[in-house]
Design a binder for these strands. Structure first.
Length: 488
RNA sequence: CGGGAUGUAGCGUAGGUUGGUUAUCGCGCCUGGUUUGGGACCAGGAGGUCGUAGGUUCGAAUCCUAUCAUCCCGACCA
């Protein structure tokens, strides 16, 4: 029943918390998980908030097919090189019945052209942009789609890496390079605000090195965050695709002056991985800690009573309070199940990370108070019933703020400037975290450091500037420091 | 694909070397009752192709062979 402690076995803790909080389960399909109602409700929160943000910044939702003809995928050389090794391929379209028991693939139904289950949708979308874009008047196109993706992963972990995952992918088309680059950065900022404001996860913005960038992109920007175990995770990416896809799919527009020009592109995405990052950022040894803005249930009320009269008196307080708090758009659950004891419920809702728990029983009735417990600090307070309605929204705000500050402190603690390779190796081994060091800019050095230490360059940070220096590994000239870390 | 391990009730397991009644225990589930302020208790009950197929044997969860699946470590990927 008890959760493994973080410092005993971090990844075991992570798996258990997901199972015990009823967020997700492994499925019988290798590498694919089942999102249970509580977990899917978190995804729905992500969808509804981000969808609103995307629409308010001029994006429109579309939906393209799950299946992509093989020929589309092979049009952009770097793109296919990056994805070829993890594609699910559909080769047949019919089964037949063998001796009324077993189904077998009907070999006569082989497809002339195999279909790929989308690992991302640039190709199938740009194939349509070719038809939709003729004039400068058709630009920009700012489309987004909510979809599932298949990437055939060898080794999977709940939310962090699964063969099938859910995401949104934005695909935009622009008339100028400048506009496309600006849009790439704009999306990075949108993601940053979204993750920091709603998830209370502080991030670092940066650019990927050429070996880490998206296959088919000119430049890949990302937001990275450090988890409680000192490992870094990429939370979102935004790509400047240059003219790579417009050239591959021959997408040109006519300028005002009548010239034909290739279209500039961006793509960007955030996935169910964000849920994994949220769990690892905030949760503790007692279970999940959900940011109030993301928690599907923000408050739970637990009655403690012996007689029906007591229950009646409790509900005379609970029902009006519940109704008025719901009017403020706060989700509140009243749990009066009798087959679980209050103690059982306390533990259950702690595992589920519900931000505020209110207990009301005979003692409270006598005093005219309720017991309010906040999940992030586990602090208990008796609050008078009269003040409750103003107290609760403020407390939700405080919790959101407190977990952000806590994560921010950790981010600072885990960011170290290191100038010697010996120290670098030591730090990576012992407490990990982000190590801010000089790099000569070559893939060879990057590879060697990865081979020797397991740390990779997570990004070249945008907002952390640094002076010229010497590469920590090769001692060659370095333009700026980059962030190294072990990663998920 | 290489190296290792494991498959027994919904979950976690005992038994296996040394084959022998009705396959063990805990959690969970169902019924009744007492409980309810930090994972309640008592009594009763349901639930099993022992991964699958074949073999050895009077007799197989146990021994043998094959096969499938899963997990861990590599490789691959990020």
């Amino acid at each position: 029943m008890k959760l493994t402690k973080r410092n005993e076995n971090y990844s075991k803790w992570y798996n258990e918390i997901i199972l015990k909080a009823n967020i997700a389960e492994k499925s019988d399909v290798r590498g694919c998980m089942i999102l249970k109602p509580y977990g899917f409700a978190i995804w729905e929160k992500i969808q509804s908030i981000l969808d609103r943000i995307l629409k308010s910044t001029g994006h429109e939702n579309v939906y393209f097919p799950l299946l992509i003809p093989k020929s589309f995928l092979s049009k952009e050389f770097n793109h296919i090189k990056g994805f070829a090794k993890e594609c699910a391929v559909i080769t047949h379209y019919r089964l037949k019945n063998l001796n009324n028991k077993n189904l077998i693939v009907d070999q006569s139904s082989h497809l002339d052209e195999e279909l790929i289950v989308r690992p991302t949708s640039e190709t199938i979308i740009w194939n349509s942009y070719k038809r939709w874009i003729n004039s400068y008047r058709d630009l920009p196109i700012l489309f987004n789609q909510w979809a599932n993706i298949i990437r055939w992963e060898m080794r999977t972990r709940f939310f962090l890496r699964t063969s099938e995952f859910l995401w949104q992918e934005g695909h935009t088309a622009h008339s100028t390079k400048k506009e496309a680059i600006n849009h790439t950065k704009k999306m990075l900022n949108i993601y940053t605000n979204f993750v920091e404001n709603f998830f209370s996860i502080p991030v670092i913005q940066g650019r990927k090195t050429s070996s880490e960038k998206f296959a088919g992109a000119e430049k890949t920007f990302c937001i990275e965050s450090i988890m409680q175990d000192g490992k870094s995770i990429q939370i979102a990416t935004s790509h400047f695709l240059g003219k790579n896809f417009s050239k591959a799919f021959d997408v040109k527009y006519t300028t005002k002056k009548g010239k034909k020009k290739y279209v500039w592109a961006t793509s960007w995405g955030i996935s169910t991985r964000l849920i994994g990052a949220m769990i690892m950022t905030h949760s503790d040894d007692k279970g999940l800690i959900l940011p109030p803005k993301i928690a599907p249930i923000q408050i739970v009320i637990i009655p403690v009573y012996k007689t029906q009269e007591q229950l009646h008196l409790i509900e005379k307080i609970v029902f009006p309070f519940k109704a008025s708090i719901e009017k403020k758009g706060i989700n509140i659950k009243y749990d009066k199940r009798t087959y679980y004891t209050p103690g059982w419920k306390f533990n259950e809702y702690e595992i589920q990370g519900i931000p505020i728990r209110i207990t009301i029983g005979k003692k409270d009735l006598d005093r005219g108070t309720v017991e309010v417990v906040r999940r992030d600090t586990l602090e208990k307070k008796n609050i008078s019933i009269k003040k409750l309605e103003t107290f609760i929204p403020k407390l939700l705000y405080k919790i959101q703020d407190n977990i952000f500050k806590k994560a921010l402190k950790r981010k600072e603690k885990f960011l170290l400037k290191v100038d010697s390779y010996e120290e670098f190796k030591k730090k990576i081994k012992t407490n990990s975290g982000f190590i801010f060091s000089h790099w000569d800019g070559t893939s060879e050095t990057e590879k060697k450091i990865k081979f020797e230490t397991n740390a990779t360059i997570r990004c070249i940070p945008i907002n952390l500037t640094s002076k010229l220096g010497k590469c920590i590994f090769s001692k060659k000239k370095s333009k700026q420091r980059v962030l190294f870390a072990k990663s998920y």
